[in-house]
């Protein structure tokens, strides 16, 4: 059912929810609250993403957008039992209330359970200091969702605070897993790394930072080629190279000295799968933090070289 609560306050929304749940006769087994902050332009898309996420994770999803009315008010719409196991509360803020959204969201958080904030599109520069971001244990941003992905990932790295995560990192998991198992099956010290990717690919920056952080060897990132996303990673060993290349965004070819070339599926993943992975663990991701620190160092070195020239 969809219940609209125009010009509401937090108490009113909460009462409407309790009543609706009572009528349907379901017990609540929701395990966390997810606050989704989207632009009004992206409202429909964000709602769809929320429904998708809600289908997999029974949670209270609070979809926050800003409206254009002059009055200081918030309009609420509650979706319950609409193809999703959890609840979706969409809040549209108007007027001065747009500056005080946390005052409405805070009372609506589920008791004693984790809160996750997700910006599907553009995100604040410092998510950890955003009033809505501060409510959350996990803050999910997506550098690829912004108009300048490379700048966005750099900004995230510079402003990193524990609990931040970026879907760019999540996208990398299959690549990282494949590279780690490549080194497993060909155990040998690595002297240098080359990462090739399509232009404006934030993931390749982060992958390079991770590889440098872990291996402590020079990592060179190159843009170009016809492929999508990351197209090739070359690990130089004493003998020759371990390479994983992927042209079409689906199928990768793996080769290492002395081993037959093999194909392995390495698909770019849907947003749903990414969010699922993100929500699997809600503690601080130390490996990501360390990779982000390395990314900052790489950027600083690049800036220093630019300044010299």
């Amino acid at each position: 059912m969809i219940i609209t609560v125009p010009d509401a306050n937090a108490t009113g929304i909460h009462m409407a929810l309790v009543k609706a749940r009572h009528n349907i006769g379901v017990a609540s087994s929701m395990v966390f609250t997810m606050v989704v902050i989207a632009d009004l332009r992206h409202y429909e898309k964000a709602l769809l993403a929320c429904k998708d996420a809600g289908r997999e994770h029974p949670s209270r999803i609070i979809l926050v957008t800003n409206g254009q009315a002059k009055a200081d008010r918030v309009d609420a719409e509650i979706r319950l039992g609409e193809e999703v196991p959890g609840e979706i509360i969409s809040l549209r803020f108007h007027g001065d209330l747009t500056e005080h959204r946390a005052s409405v969201v805070l009372p609506l958080l589920l008791p004693d359970s984790p809160v996750v904030t997700w910006w599907p599109g553009s995100a604040p520069d410092k998510p950890g200091q955003d009033p809505l971001g501060k409510l959350a244990l996990r803050r999910i941003t997506d550098a690829m969702g912004s108009s300048h992905p490379l700048k966005a990932i750099e900004r995230r790295a510079r402003n990193y605070s524990p609990g931040d995560t970026d879907l760019t990192w999540t996208r990398l998991t299959p690549w990282r897993a494949l590279l780690a198992s490549a080194v497993d099956s060909y155990p040998s010290p690595i002297s240098e790394v080359f990462v090739e990717a399509a232009p404006h690919n934030a993931a390749s920056m982060l992958l390079s930072a991770w590889l440098q952080d872990r291996l402590n060897v020079p990592v060179t990132r190159q843009e170009g080629g016809k492929g999508v996303g990351i197209t090739r990673v070359t690990l130089k060993t004493d003998n020759s190279d371990i390479t994983v290349s992927r042209e079409d965004g689906k199928m990768a070819t793996f080769s290492a000295p002395g081993l037959p070339r093999r194909q392995v599926a390495l698909r770019r993943r849907e947003i749903n799968a990414l969010i699922t992975e993100e929500l699997r663990r809600l503690d601080v991701d130390d490996i990501f933090a360390s990779a982000m620190r390395c990314l900052v160092q790489r950027c600083e070195r690049r800036d220093a070289e630019k300044a010299k020239r």
Partner: peptide
């Protein structure tokens, strides 16, 4: 060790630097 035709590898104490017990995402 695939490099020497399956003979027992010399770098048997090699630790894969890409793996870390903290890295819980890597399957």
């Amino acid at each position: 060790d695939p490099r020497n035709d399956g003979r027992v590898t010399q770098v048997s104490n090699f630790v894969n630097p890409l793996r870390d017990p903290q890295d819980r995402r890597l399957p």
